[in-house]
Amino acid sequence: MGVTGKYFFSPGQIVTEQYPENRKTLKMAERFKGEVIMPHDENNQHRCTGCGICELNCPNGSIEIISTRIETPEGKKVRIIDKHIYHLSMCTFCGLCIKTCPSDSLAWGQEFEHAVFDRSKLTKVLNQPGSSIIKGIE
């Protein structure tokens, strides 16, 4: 009774996270695994070469890469991605895609409010429309 009494009379120790109210101040840990994202720079450029290693390493098949082969002006045949499709609904957040990516094009996003009304909204295209690869990444 002493313990409960002590806590009753010292309300300063309340530990409840008042979640929807503290949204503005809520800060997740910097390594928080919210979702997989592909960071783009200010020129709408990403680092993904479309090699498909993340697709191979994903245990659940939550990544699909649709890529096309094009010929560069120098005459080299290069693969570029059309779409980097990410099924959030199948992801188990193991982090293997991010760890194995040779060009560090993927990262963890901080977003965690994933609830949607339609399942198809959980399928995301990670590269933004019209984006291109940063020069110099093989």
């Binding site: 840990a29 390594r31 695994k33």
Partner: peptide
């Protein structure tokens, strides 16, 4: 959460070391 990014299912160890 601070170190591994998640609270319950961490997948933090890999064969050979850590993530």
């Amino acid at each position: 959460e601070e170190s591994f990014g998640s609270r319950l299912l961490h997948s933090y160890y890999t064969p050979g070391g850590l993530m």
